[in-house]
Amino acid sequence: MTKADIIESVYEQIGFSKREAADVVETVFETMKSTLANGEKIKVSGFGNFVVRSKRARVGRNPQTGDVITISERRVLTFKPSQVLKDALNDNQSDA
C-alpha cells in the first residue's frame, strides 16, 4: 500500500474529488511529521502511538573497519502498535 491507495480509500469513502482526497491525505502526513519534529507524540487510538525518544551519545564501531567512533546524541521515532491492531493481526489464531 502506498499513499496513492490511501488517497483512493478517502476518495471512495468520503466523497471528495481525487484532488481533495490527495490534498487532505498529504496534509495529514505533513501535520504528523511537523508534530513529531517538535518532539510531540501522536496517539492514534485503535492503531498505535508514535513517540520521539532521545538516545544518549554512545560509543560504536564501524563494523567494516573495527574503528571506534562516537555515535552522537540523537532522537529517534518509534511506533508502538495498539493492542487493537495487534489483536486484529492475530485474529485467526486467537479464534482458533
Binding site: 511529521k33 511537523s34 513529531l36 519534529a37 517538535n38 518532539g39 498505535g48 508514535f50 520521539v52 532521545s54 546524541e73 540523537r74 532522537r75 529517534v76 521515532l77 518509534t78 511506533f79 502498535p81 491492531l85 495487534k86 493481526l89 492475530n90
Partner: peptide
C-alpha cells in the same frame, strides 16, 4: 504477527535537526 514501523529518511532528519 506484529506490526513493525521503520521511520523514513526525511522524518528522521526532521526529528534530529529540530533536536
Amino acid at each position: 504477527k506484529v506490526p513493525h514501523f521503520r521511520a523514513g529518511k526525511e522524518i528522521r532528519k526532521l526529528i534530529n535537526d529540530a533536536a
